[in-house]
């Protein structure tokens, strides 16, 4: 095994720290009430992700991970948060409060998700490197927390942020596994970019139709067909 990838080695410890930081930021996303804070937390998560990608690129000696990190930093850490802030400003919902699930239930559910991810990933990847295993468990936890956030949130904007934080988990998994080609990360990044554009257009449509981003208005459209 690569000595830089064991417990106690700097390569391992820092990678583990960055992955866990991403996970902690997912928890923060889960209970944030103000829209501005949600967007800022998302940007922070993207920065940590970019740092994780840079660190992995250096540890694994694979330059293409720098590209991944650069994409994460520029697109998800800067461009998308700026665009989201712009939307929030134009829709004037920056100070509005969204009632997510309470702090304790969100935390408890999130902990359950993380425990489940660890129970699933660790036994399956017995043969793989220690770092890969831990990294995959953390990445799956981030994905599950993103899913959880998607179903606890009410407005379309926060749901999209949840979707993109779920995608952060995928990137985290991709950078943690040595030998994953750049094209995977690129395609995921492009997908999210396209989704962000589509959702941005979508927000304004919903807003102009219902004067709100609360998606429960959409359910009434479905009920009309009953």
């Amino acid at each position: 095994m690569d000595p830089r990838m064991g417990y106690g080695a700097l390569g391992y410890d820092l990678a583990h720290l960055l992955g866990t930081a991403t996970l902690v930021l997912s928890f923060v996303l889960l209970y944030q009430k103000r829209i501005d804070a949600v967007v800022n937390t998302y940007a922070a998560q993207a920065w940590v992700l970019a740092a994780a990608a840079f660190w992995q690129g250096w540890v694994q000696d694979s330059p293409h991970l720098y590209v991944t990190g650069l994409i994460a930093l520029l697109a998800k850490g800067v461009a998308i948060p700026l665009a989201l802030h712009n939307i929030v400003r134009r829709l004037r919902i920056g100070r509005s409060i969204e009632s997510a699930l309470g702090v304790f239930p969100s935390m408890a559910l999130g902990m359950g998700m993380v425990a489940l991810a660890i129970l699933v990933v660790l036994p399956i990847t017995l043969g793989a490197q220690v770092l890969t295993r831990e990294d995959l468990a953390i990445a799956l936890s981030v994905v599950l927390l993103g899913l959880l956030m998607m179903i606890t949130r009410r407005t379309a904007l926060t749901q999209v942020i949840a979707f993109m934080s779920m995608e952060n988990g995928l990137i985290l998994a991709a950078v943690g596994v040595a030998g994953m080609p750049l094209v995977v990360e690129l395609s995921v990044a492009v997908l999210v970019l396209v989704a962000a554009i589509v959702f941005g257009e979508f927000f304004f449509r919903i807003r102009s139709q219902f004067d709100s981003l609360d998606i429960s208005h959409l359910d009434r459209v479905g009920e009309a067909h009953r």
């Binding site: 991810a117 899913l147 998607m150 959409l218 359910d219 009953r226």
Partner: peptide, 20 residues
């Protein structure tokens, strides 16, 4: 005729059940 959130919840529930 479930709402969007309910459909998402069902999907997440099934995924979690599968993982369990």
């Amino acid at each position: 005729f479930l709402t969007i959130r309910q459909i998402l919840s069902v999907m997440v529930g099934v995924l979690v059940l599968f993982l369990i």
